[in-house]
Write a protein that binds this DNA or RNA. Sequence first.
DNA 1: ATCGCAGCCTGTACGC
DNA 2: TGCGTACAGGCTGCGA
Length: 276
Amino acid sequence: MPELPEVESVVRDLHRAGLVGREIQELTVRWPRTLDRPSVEEARVRLRGARIADVRRRGKFIILDLSTGESLLVHLRMTGQIDLQLASREPDPHHHLLLALDHGEELRFRDTRKFGRFYLVAHPDEIVGDLGPEPIDPAFTLEQFRTMMRGRRGTIKPLLLNQSFVAGLGNIYVDEALFRAHIHPERRADTLTEQELVVLFGAMRDVLVEGIENRGTTLGEASTNYLSVAGRRGNNKQNLRVFRRTGHPCPDCGTPIERIIVGQRSSHVCPLCQPK
DNA sequence: ATCGCAGCCTGTACGC
DNA sequence: TGCGTACAGGCTGCGA
């Protein structure tokens, strides 16, 4: 569920909440699979007394760099959320991992579908080493994108969703970027014209940057939807042009938006603006 | 390299 | 209201 803009919003909110500098005093894991590695016993020993030196993002991962030199990585997957609450407050039944901090606070990981994962590692590259470039990093150039696309015989949408190709795009922002570039999601990557490539590169960045400016996309009211720290909603839904807008008029030509399946993922397209 | 599928989980929406 | 079904924004491992 959370993609690059949502994860970026969580990281910014954690900074705002003053997470950097805080001390981790205890780890509690209530759903064992939430901690991918190491074992709970091992992690408790290594986390106790560590301070949070920095909070940053790589792709869809949140990285907590620790004073010990190690890093704690979090992937929210579909329904993961981070809460910062007083330890005295009763945790939610969906809080599966708790990090007791100083000042009587707790960082709590809430995740209805239980797909989210924590990784405590000596170096983040153990987890994020295979990720592709950051799409909104100024160091990521059109030239580089062009080279990466060369010779890719696969379908464009699954390729953009592949985190080792580019890091951070998910179903929402891929559909939005392809629509803005007027490219059908089933196009073969190496058949894009130079012009299409240029427009797609810009569209990809635009939808992500706008997503961040709007603090992410929260789709509905349900507890399974994206929320940032302390239940904060994102405002980017109003910015979506095709995603989950089946039957609504295309903002460019008025034709009803269609929902199709591409690479086993639901996809939203304007049949006129995005011809095959 | 690329594709398709099962699996990991729970909640929600919708048709009857 | 209840029941069955389909569906959900991610990712991994497997076989082809």
